[in-house]
């Protein structure tokens, strides 16, 4: 009797069983992770969609026992504060990124600044609110859209900076060399050759940062607070007044014992998530097209 090795497939030996077992668990994990997403989406469409109407977008939030109402002022407030944040964070992030990617020449300052930016991405969003509270609310003595915008900008800066740096670094170095060889100053190399090529990537980064902060609640809770009124009244906006936002509205209304308010919270969530998803998807398409 020769002792020949057995090459046949077997589904019963312990190695095969273990493999099948582990594969099953992984599949379950992956499917399990998708369930919450679908559940959230289904609930948003069912409960939020039920309430969806034109009134939501122009009416003011209802008082306790009111019926109807909407959150027009919160949509405007969110857009306005995200706008302020972008106004601060986009120039800051991109200029710093240009230094990190190019002018810093991988020196000490660039390295430390990059590390600081990475550390900042990990700062809890509520602490951005605490900072804006100390730096703006306590100084000006009032909750305001400015304070909310500053808080959000703290969250946007590192994201924009790191993605912009990444996209500048992705510009082929051959192109950079060509520009240097033509006799461009460093600034001309950057503006004429590198930035146009890096632009889609940088826009993607900005859009993702915008999408992220539009849903932020914690930094607004005690900087912009909330308001039942429009930020623009009689043509003039008052940016030094408490300002409504979709996210804070969802939070406030979710804890109320009134069915009308809870329905509005779902509808506001649907609007917010739709906004965020649209920005996300557009920015991803932009990025993929470039790649």
């Amino acid at each position: 009797m020769k002792n020949t090795p057995n090459f046949n497939k077997s589904f019963t030996d312990s190695r095969a069983l273990k493999s099948i077992f582990l594969s099953t668990i992984t599949v379950l994990c992956a499917v399990g992770a998708c369930i919450p997403l679908f559940s959230v989406l289904v609930m948003l469409i069912m409960r939020g969609g039920k309430r969806l109407s034109f009134e939501l977008f122009y009416a003011l939030p209802p008082t306790a026992f009111d019926t109807g109402g909407g959150f027009g002022n919160a949509i405007v407030g969110t857009l306005f504060m995200v706008g302020i944040a972008a106004l601060i964070a986009v120039p800051f992030g991109i200029l710093a990124a240009i230094y990190l990617a190019e002018f810093g020449e991988n020196g000490k300052l660039a390295e430390i600044a990059r590390f600081c930016a990475k550390t900042m991405t990990g700062i809890p969003s509520i602490l951005a609110g605490v900072l804006a509270y100390a730096a703006v609310v306590m100084v000006t003595g009032t909750y305001s859209a400015i304070a909310g915008g500053v808080a959000l900008s703290i969250l946007m800066i590192p994201t924009i900076m790191l993605t912009a740096e990444e996209s500048i670094k992705m510009v082929p170095s051959a192109m950079r060399e060509a520009a240097v060889g033509m006799g461009c100053t460093k600034t001309q190399v950057m503006w004429k050759v590198m930035l146009p090529v890096a632009m889609p990537g940088m826009i993607t980064g900005v859009m993702l940062a915008v999408a992220r902060v539009s849903g932020e609640t914690a930094p607004l809770l005690f900087t912009a607070l909330f308001s039942d009124y429009w930020i623009f009244q009689g043509g003039a906006g008052d940016i030094m007044e408490p300002t409504a936002s979709l996210a804070v509205l969802i939070y406030n209304f979710s804890g109320m014992p009134f069915e009308n308010q809870i329905e509005l919270a779902w509808a506001a969530s649907l609007v917010l998530v739709t906004m965020v998803f649209i920005i996300n998807i557009i920015s991803r398409m932009l990025f993929q097209k470039k790649k």
């Binding site: 919450p36 997403l37 559940s39 959230v40 609930m43 948003l44 999408a211 992220r212 539009s214 849903g215 932020e216 609640t217 914690a218 996210a247 969802i250 939070y251 979710s254 919270a265 779902w266 969530s269 917010l272 998530v273 965020v276 998803f277 996300n280």
Partner: peptide
Amino acid sequence: AAIPSVVYGLW
């Protein structure tokens, strides 16, 4: 990751 945390809270 894109869904805001307040929406998760509501859910």
